[in-house]
Structure formats: C-alpha cells, structure tokens
Nucleic acid binder design. Structure first.
Lengths: 230, 230, 230, 230
DNA sequence: AATGAATGAGCTTTCATTCAT
DNA sequence: CATGAATGAAAGCTCATTCAT
C-alpha cells in the first residue's frame, strides 16, 4: 500500500488484518447499531405507543433477537429514553438554527416572524415531532423527567431564543409588548394554534404548506396588530 | 297489584322475590351500576393510564368481581370508550353553559372575553380534563374516533359558540377581525397558551386562579389590541 | 327433606341448589386446592431444588396453568414458604408427640432415650425430612427467616422438650450432666451422627431400621456411660 | 537467535512473536489462569449460590469476557466441578495435617482430642467450609458425585485418621470403646454439634474461638467419660 | 346478575452458550 | 487465545377474558 503515508487510516486496515479492530472503530460500530435499534424502536413506538409496543416486535422488526436488544439497552424504559433523547437532539439542532439576533435591529419584523413561525409550525407537524409529543404527553404522569428533557430541548429553548429576539426588537423601537417572554409564548401559541391541535389529535391530515402559511400569516397579523408600533 | 299504593316499597320487595323488576326500573338500576363502574374506571385510568390499568384493579376498587365487570362491558376497550363518552358528555355540558350570545350586542367585550377565557382555561386545567386529554392523545393512533368525540364535545363546540358571539360583536361594530372563526380559534389558542402546555406535560403544578387570570388577561389584551376598534 | 332439623347441614344443600355455596365450603375448597398445589410443588422442589424448579413445570405437573398457580400464591417464593411452613407443621406435630415428661421420674432412662432416639433419627431419614433440610440449608443465605421457622419447628423444639425431660431425670438422681440443655444437644447430635450426615449427602441409601437401632444404641451407651449414675 | 543469552527475557518475547511458548510454560500459564478463574468463581458461588451465579458476573469480576471463560471451562457445570475439586483439595490438605498418630501411645488423650476437635470445628465454621457444604448439599440431588468427592476429602478422611489414632490409644490401654471407627464418628459428631448446625443454617453469627473451645470441651468430657479408662 | 376459578397468550428480562473476528 | 456480539430457550409473572356455578 503505497499511499499508506498519505492516508493514516490505511494503517487501521493493517490492524484489522491482525484481527484487532481499533477501539474507536469498534465503538463506532456499536454506536451505529444502537442508532439502528433506536430507529426501529421509534417506528414501533410511533405505531403502537410506549406501553403497547413490545420488545419482541421491536426485535422482530430489527431482524435480531430480544437478547441482542438487551445487550444494547438494559430495559425497555432505557430504550425509550434513548429514543426521546435522540429525538430531542434533533429539536435542539433546529432550535439552535434560529436566525441570528443581530438581525433584530433590522426593520422587517414581519418577515422574520413569518419565517420563524412557518419553520416552527412546519417542524411541529412533522410526523416525528407530532408522535414525539404524543408519546411524551402520554407518559407524562409515569415519567415526568422525560417531559422535562423534551420541553427544554424543544419548546422551552425556542421560547428563550425568541424572547431574546423580541427584546432586541423592542429596544430598537419596532414593537412594544409589556413583557417579551410572555409575548414570545403568545406568538408561539398562536402559531401552534388549532391547526396543530387538531392534527395532534389525528383529526385532520397533515397540514399543507399553504395551510401553514395561512395560519402563521394570521398569527403574525394579530401579533403585530396588538404589539406593533406603526 | 292492589296494595301498591299502600306500600310502594313492598312492590319492589315482592318483585325481587319473583326476580322480576319492572323493566324501566331494571334499566335504571343497570345504568346506575354502569355509571358507578365508569366512575371507578376513570380513577384507575387517571392514575395508571389505559394500558397499565388492569381490569382486576378496577374490579377490586369497585368491590366486585371481574366477572361482573364483563357483565356490564364486553371488553376493557368498551369500558374505556364508555368513560371517554361520559367525560365528553361533561365537556359538552360545560360548553353549553357558555354565556348567552344576546349579550353580544352589549358593549363590554373585554369583560365577556375575560370571563369566557377564565372559565375555559379554568376548566382545561381541571384534573379530569387534563387526564382526559392525556388519555385521548395517548390513544389517538390506536383509536382516532375517540379523539373525534373528544374534540367535538370540547374545544370544537367551544369554538363554534365563540365564533357566533364574535360575529355578533363584529356586526355590532365592536371588533373587526377578518375571519371570526379564525379569530375564535386564535383567542382560545392564546388562552390555552404555555401555562396549559406545561401543565399538560406535568412540568408545573396545577395553575392557581391568579395565574389563570394573568394568562387570560394578557390574551384579551393582545386580542383586543389586534382586533378591537377603539 | 324430613331430617333437615336433625342435620342443619342439610340446609346447606338447599343453599347449593340456589347456586350459592356457603362461604365455609368455598374456603374449604380453596384450601384443598392450595394443599394440592403445595404437595405438587414439594415434589418438584425435592427433585430439582428451589432455584431449578420452575413454575411452569409445577403447573404442568398439576395439570393446570401458570395463571392458576399465581391465583393461589403470589410468587414462587410465597409458594416455597407455604411448603416450608406446611412441612414444619408436620415436624411440630411430631415434636409435640414426645413421651410425657412425667415419665421422667421413672427409672428406665435407657428405654426412654432409646425410644426417643429411634423416633428422632427415624423421622430425620424420612424422605420429606431430608429434602426439607437440604432445601433449607441451600437457601439459608438467601432466606434466613425460612431457616428460623424450620429450626424452631423441628430441632429447636425437640431440644427444648428433651432438656425438660433430662432435668427431671437429673432431679430424680438418675443422671448427672453438668448442663442439661447441652446434654440434650449432645444426645441429639450423637443420634444424628454420621449415618444421617452421609445420607443427607446422598452418599448412602436410606438407612434401614436395623442401622438406625444400632446407631441410636451406641449413642445411648456413650451418653449414659458419660452422664449416667450407676 | 544469537542474542538470546544476553537477554533471557528477550527469548520469551521472541517466542511470543512466533506464538510458540515452550509447552511446559504454556501449561503453567494456562493453569495459573484456570486457578484465577476458579478463585473468582468461588467468590461468586459463595455470594449467590450455584444457580443464581451467572457466567456474566464471573467474567465481569474477572475483568475478562465470557468467551474467555468458555475457553477454559466448557460449561458452567464444569467450572463448578473444578471449584468443588479445588476446595476439596484444600480440605484434603487440612486433613493430612492432623497430628501424627505416633503421639497415640502418649498418655494425654484429652489434650490430643481437644486439639483435634478444636481444629476440626474451627475449620468447619470457616466461611469457605460452610459455603462449600451448603453448595454441595444444595446440589446433592442433581450431582451426587460432587458429594462423594466432598465427603472423601473432608469428613470421611478425617474419620479414617482419627480411627487409626483411637485404635492405637485403645491398644495402649488408654480408652476402651467397643468400636473405634464408630467412636471416631461419635466424637466428630459431638464436635460438630449444635453450634455448627445452627451456624450452617445461618441462624447465628460465626462462632467465636471461645464458643468452639466450650463445645469441644464438653464433647471431650462426654467422650472420655463414656469411653475413658480411669 | 354475580362470582371467582381457570386459562393461555404474552410480557419483560436473564442467561448459558456459540462464533466470527 | 481473547473478545464481545448474537442467539434462543426459558424464566417469573400479568392480564383480559371465559365459564360453571
């Protein structure tokens, strides 16, 4: 292997020849499998709910045995937690992807809020987000700490972010709400709205982008109508 | 039966001896027992959730046997549905108890909305309402028809009612929303708000009346700020 | 039924006709079943030991289902305890059947000790006694309270009884041990002896009555040789 | 390899590279590892009992993997047997360490018996001895050959030894038992006594040296009282 | 109508053992 | 030889449901 020097990972190949995978790679493999399991578990939890989902069916869909499942997660509860944390990680990624606050000084609040609202609601009506909420609410009595993780990673974080933005906008004199944190909560409540509520109850099919646009448009209108400074 | 007038209770006793109660009375008795069962089931469903609640524990708390339960409800699922319908009936009663629309012509919209909002949110954070929501959401995948019943009896009905009121107020020239149905949804979304969201996740204790007043006050302010006509 | 007055239980027959078994009879039935279960469990515990015995195999040998087993005993442990207590009850019956102490004043200590020793050892080498000891010793670490029950019902109680007898005999001047309780323990230890020890290890077949006689004879000889007063 | 003499340890290293250790050395290494495994297994068997001890926990405590375990012992049962044999070997060592019979001609039987008894009982109440007994008894049904190994190496061998001593003492005219083998068994039964019985049932804490002294003292007294020649 | 014993399928979990690397 | 992932059988236990009384 002539390019071994150019590609240090080539040496890893040599190690493999000796039957000794480097630890890092072993761990990576294990992590990949863990993720695969969590992904299958997610599907089953979605379809059946936590309580009704059985480890047997998860194992069957995985194509492996129950024993293997338990080699990776010490209990059904632990598997559920792993899924919740994984899903919250995705929320978190989304929340941290908000537009920079420095744009707050800029004039076009309407555009910013509209963009934010559409992305927020657009994410909420994602199948994975809706099912996550359903699972978390369903188990809220039994496992309140999961609800905590969920809230902080998702809605809670989003509100903090939006609050900061609104405060900047207020300081710049573009809006005038009495309490920016409350205003942020109100805006997101308006975005969530009835569309989302009904969808979360499985009463209507997944909202179309047009419906989302409309819902957010009305939310922005009311919000700026009430708090905007002309 | 000649002596019925003299000793009405005697009649019952005699009928019992013969094992033949008048049909109407039998039905009444059966219905009373059904209600008693549903009430016990409600408690257990609240405490344990649908899946974890066992017919045994319901029977035990009832002081009867499992067999008796099955004499009244043919399955656990049927018992659960009976409870949901019962609970929704209570919602319905609440909804029909909204203030009369004829007050709409009256000037004090703020007072009407505040009153409505406080009663709405106050009811939402009731233990029975929150648990009902949790159960319905948890089973929304498995049994979407339950969600339907729930929505129509509760939030859906409330929106219809409020829409009518807002239209009257708009006709009277007190407010000017572009779409009254949408406005009604927005107002209720604002009332539900984050307080309710967090409570439904078991993240905070039951909101106090003062907290409810504050949340609704801010909702009314934003709503009238946006849609009101000065 | 003409003799109903003479035989009040005849009325019970009438109750049965109405489909209502008297509570006492129901309980008796339940108790009978419990005993039957314990008896089957005993066999399986004997053959496999506590840990290796499975509820499935007990149920199978019973001809019933596992569910039924758990209707009568809430866990495998509970079933084991029920068996231990039952077996100890038999020990207790045997212990309380010792010859009356008032015979102690009588002269023939040799005959009394011989009789006692033979009955004691004869019972020890009973299959049920030997298996009981094996089970109790095997689980002594895990469940010391079972060992306590066993000891008090069997060996402990026997020693107390024998001690009383020896004290009477000492008062009557027939023997002269420095400490009667210790002497009682020594006598029983001698009776138990190596014969029993080896049998409890499954090393030899069940001792014959002749072997028992011989072992006890030598025990009595040594005991009276050491403590007797010529 | 010319430099082998200069660096003796280098030899080993070189051999390792070639994967060829001298056979004797390989075997020694293997045996050492086997012993280490058996020692760890012993601890786990002590703490959990045979059935409850898992190969996983043994491997974990060993710091190795289950696969390695199976490289050295082909099954859990085989590992258990190896432990029993090892433990019995220790018993054997102890037995062969008994005082020399040539002392038999000497006069002080009391001292000899006392010394023997205390060492015997002292060893019996050792943690390893008591747990060994418990394990052997627990598995006596399933694996009678283990009990055989155990008995021959321990109590059985001791009796043979003591019998020889007593015969010498009898020949010397110091004692006069009708049957020395039986007398030996009786003496050890007396030593074992109730103290040991109760300890083996986990009913009392480990006997103190003082308690052992007392128990043996009374055994010697009774034994010499019965069989001694004044 | 009421009872409660009986059932059997199914649950989560554990474990000895095997095998590719 | 060491590793640890994978397996599958079986364990203890629960529960909705049925049925004879």
């Amino acid at each position: 292997m002539a390019d071994a020097k150019l590609d240090p990972e080539g040496e890893v190949g040599a190690a493999e020849l000796k039957g000794k995978l480097p630890k890092a790679r072993l761990d990576a493999r294990r992590d990949a499998k863990r993720e695969a399991i969590v992904d299958v578990a997610r599907q089953v939890f979605f379809e059946e709910g936590y309580a009704a989902a059985s480890m047997s069916s998860i194992a069957a869909r995985l194509g492996g045995s129950k024993g293997t499942l338990y080699n990776y997660f010490k209990s059904k509860e632990a598997l559920f937690e792993a899924y919740i944390e994984h899903a919250c990680g995705q929320w978190r990624a989304w929340v941290f992807d908000l537009p920079d606050d420095d744009a707050a000084g800029g004039a076009d609040i309407e555009a910013v809020l509209t963009d934010l609202g559409e992305r927020f609601l657009g994410h909420l009506v994602t199948e994975s987000a809706i099912r996550l909420l359903q699972l978390v609410i369903a188990e809220a009595q039994r496992a309140p700490e999961l609800a905590h993780i969920f809230y902080d990673a998702g809605p809670g974080g989003g509100i903090a972010r939006l609050t900061a933005y609104l405060e900047a906008a207020k300081a710049a004199g573009h809006i005038d709400p009495p309490d920016c944190r409350m205003a942020a909560q109100q805006f997101l409540s308006l975005c969530r709205g009835h569309l989302y509520f009904r969808y979360s109850l499985n009463l209507i099919p997944r909202p179309t982008p047009a419906e989302i646009k409309a819902e957010v448009g009305r939310a922005v209108a009311l919000f700026l109508g009430g708090y905007g400074r002309p």
